[in-house]
């Protein structure tokens, strides 16, 4: 027997800046790769999805209209806090079956990935926007604007780097997110929400659901107040989800065609996936 019994954490959902249990009262058992019991995480229901989408929609107005520079500072602050919890994340990432070194590397990569996207907030418009030389007395320019509420199915692994890689670009361009965490390894995701809650990211900008992807993803895909969906974490055929997404013409990022090198330079694809290009015409004359 140890001299002191450790105090365990209850792994809850993150919706609208608060940490509720699932309204359904259900949990899922989370085990480490070696079968050791870790936690009873919340098993979100369709009503939790509904609440999460409402929270994300409510937060969109404020988040999307902050200056890009301000969003960058807030996201960079998140990276600072992630770094401060390096040991905790490393321990949780190890449960997905990694050795200490590999887990540490994944956490480092996740922090660097967050920094990379924090820097994009006030740059994406200079790379993706344009002034368009139309043939006439008009000034014409195009700017990327955030799509809105983005539902994200995070990849099962890598449990932290995968999540950061799909979440950060959505936040950087000004959308808000409802995330379905890695089903087998959701604990780093829950800890990430604790980081977000103590950063300056407003409540509702990120909402995290844990539980069964099969149960949650179809509800999100069909939800008429979700503007876009990232299916990166769907393992296998996503046809039905894509069909459901067509109900309100969601922008869909399909599951990757093959294995993803999560440590490689991610490029701007994920930033481009969830923005709308707006073009403005204005006459030029006295």
């Amino acid at each position: 027997m140890p001299d002191r019994l450790d105090v365990r954490k209850t792994y809850k959902l993150y919706i609208g800046g608060a940490f509720p249990r699932s309204e359904s009262g259900r949990t899922v058992t989370i085990d480490a790769a070696d079968g050791t019991f870790l936690a009873n995480a919340a098993r979100a229901s369709r009503k939790d999805v509904r609440d999460a989408v409402v929270a994300a929609r409510k937060a969109f107005g404020g988040w999307s209209t902050r200056t890009a520079y301000n969003r960058g500072q807030i996201l960079y602050r998140v990276a600072e806090l992630l770094e401060g919890r390096r040991d905790q994340f490393t321990a949780e990432v190890r449960h997905s079956g990694l050795g200490a070194q590999a887990a540490g590397r994944e956490v480092d990569a996740a922090v660097d990935r967050w920094v990379w996207y924090a820097g994009w907030t006030d740059k994406i418009a200079q790379v993706e926007g344009a002034s368009n030389p139309v043939a006439g007395p008009y000034f014409n320019f195009s700017v990327p604007e955030p799509t809105g509420v983005v539902a994200i199915v995070a990849p099962a692994t890598p449990s932290l780097l995968g999540l950061v890689s799909v979440l950060a670009p959505v936040l950087a361009t000004g959308s808000t997110a409802v995330v379905v965490a890695s089903e087998p390894h959701p604990l780093p995701a829950v800890t990430l929400t604790e980081v977000l809650a103590t950063s300056d990211v407003p409540g509702g900008v990120v909402n995290l659901l844990t539980g069964h992807v099969d149960e949650l993803a179809p509800v999100l895909a069909a939800h008429a107040d979700v503007d876009a969906m990232d299916l990166t974490g769907i393992d296998g055929d996503a046809t039905e989800l894509e069909q459901a997404a067509a109900g309100n013409v969601k922008r869909v990022l399909r599951p990757p065609a093959g294995p993803v090198d999560w440590e490689a330079d991610p490029g701007v694809e994920r930033l481009r996936a969830f923005v709308e290009t707006k073009t403005v015409w204005h006459p030029v004359g006295v």
Binding site: Q73, W116, A118, G119, W120, T121, K123, V127, G267
Partner: peptide, 18 residues
């Protein structure tokens, strides 16, 4: 401070800067 912050973000994105 903002100038350093802004260019910090470019340092790892030069291949995407055109």
């Amino acid at each position: 401070s903002a100038h350093f912050f802004h260019y910090a973000g470019w340092a790892d994105k030069l291949e995407h800067a055109g």
